[in-house]
């Protein structure tokens, strides 16, 4: 079972992407998509060093919803800052200590930070314990780091590193 279906989540995801690409949902295309979703992970097995383990799909869904909501809020905020007075910005670099260890969780966190509240993740320390984040306008760097940890890292820990 593990040898034949190494990535159970990737197969349906690839099938859905295939259906979106051909823009039709006929039974034949569904079958072709599933076949591709089965074959591609099998042939690219060596590019996937670690298999991600996911628990708690509900927490993951809530995390995705939070990020989507934050994207819209962050965009309005950034738009206001751009249209406002740029000389009043308080840009700052913040070092966020990481509690996550798996590659997938760290990259998801970095992506979420990039898309949301006026922050861009700039650099992961080589020991994978600190993430350097640049914020566009932050009054209190400490508070920002704490907010990032609470809002994004905590749910990701629950999903990918249950312990």
């Amino acid at each position: 079972m593990r040898r034949l279906l190494p990535h159970p989540f990737l197969t349906p995801a690839l099938a859905v992407i295939w259906l979106l690409l051909v823009n039709r949902a006929t039974p034949g295309q569904v079958l072709l998509g599933l076949a591709l979703g089965w074959a591609i992970p099998l042939f690219t097995l060596r590019f996937w060093p670690e298999t991600a383990r996911m628990g708690r799909p509900l927490t993951l869904l809530r995390f995705v919803a939070t990020v989507l909501y934050d994207i819209i809020v962050a965009n309005l905020m950034v738009a206001r800052l751009i249209l406002g007075r740029p000389e009043r910005l308080r840009p700052v670099f913040v070092v966020v200590p990481l509690a996550l260890t798996s590659d997938l969780a760290i990259s998801l966190l970095a992506n979420a930070i990039c898309l949301t509240p006026g922050t861009v993740s700039a650099r992961l320390a080589p020991d994978r314990r600190h993430l350097l984040v640049h914020a566009l306008d932050a009054a209190d760097p400490e508070q920002l780091a704490a907010a990032l940890k609470r809002r994004y890292e905590a749910p990701l820990r629950e999903v990918f590193e249950p312990c």
Binding site: I82, P86, A122
Partner: peptide
């Protein structure tokens, strides 16, 4: 607005925010 931010914001790191978000 994103492109405007690219022109208006003062340094590279702040300019980076405009296109990625807006």
């Amino acid at each position: 607005i994103g492109a405007l931010g690219l022109v208006r914001l003062p340094d590279f790191y702040t300019r980076l925010h405009a296109p990625t978000k807006a």
